[in-house]
Design a protein around this nucleic acid. Structure first.
Lengths: 129, 129
DNA sequence: CACTTTGCTCTATTACTTATAGAACAATTG
DNA sequence: CAATTGTTCTATAAGTAATAGAGCAAAGTG
């Protein structure tokens, strides 16, 4: 897994890390049961603080994408990640809404935004930056 | 314009206000040249601070959706809002990416997400919450 | 068993964001 | 002229983000 953090981004680096791990799962680079680096090793590897990696892990644990086993290690959800619940779909829509509204105000058509969605899904699946 | 602020939301209220004004523009409730309430009047109306409304206004001004004329008032971009630039499209995609990645990890298909996009566009245009 | 590794917890500091508050300024507007 | 306007300034409080270092207790390993 190649992780790249933009230190000047407005997106917190713990979130950047979490997002890239999510993409790794989508791409199948990280499979159910796979172990993730220890918070210390990962932090040293990425040149960031242990607590920041820990925060990313807990963010992913809350979403049930990974399992944190105290005094043992961190693993991609061993039983596989379950499908989206109604609530999760609703939350996704809530987060997408202001972005689409901004697109519409900039005169983007629904078709153009669907095209953007398609390109993004391709990029994510292929690991394109 | 009916504005509704969720005080317990993790989304800052100045952003919630800005988002809802953007939707108002999309719906045509706010037309080019229309004047927006003064920061003081709007703040009193919404039960929030003058500075918070001011922050929302400046957020929208930076995106060139409104024009702030010092000592005069605030207006929806009089000449109409220009279409999305390449950079704006790129920024939108950057912001959408982690949401789509999360959808994919939750086993949502591209078709399902296109459907969500469609429903959202409808909701925005119809002013559905 | 002894040692290392592990995630967890605690205290601390720094910088930034969010939100509120009040006051004053200067130009526009009626 | 008087009220309204966005701007600017200082101030405070709470929260987040990121770093730092130390210690703990249990799991894992040789």
């Amino acid at each position: 897994m190649f992780i790249e953090i933009k230190t000047n981004s407005s997106v917190p680096i713990y979130l950047q890390l979490a997002h890239q791990l999510i993409e790794g799962i989508v791409r199948g680079e990280l499979k159910p049961g796979d172990s993730l680096p220890s918070v210390r090793a990962f932090a040293a590897d990425l040149g960031m603080n242990m607590h920041t990696v820990n925060k990313a892990y807990h963010y992913l644990e809350e979403k049930e994408f990974i399992q944190i086993v105290a005094k043992s290690g961190v693993f991609i959800q061993p039983n596989g990640i379950p499908g989206a619940t109604v609530i999760e779909k609703q939350q996704l829509k809530e987060q997408m809404r202001p972005l689409l509204a901004e697109g519409l105000v900039l005169k983007l058509s629904e078709e153009e935004m669907v095209k953007m969605l398609h390109e993004l899904v391709q990029d994510i699946k292929e690991g394109k930056p």
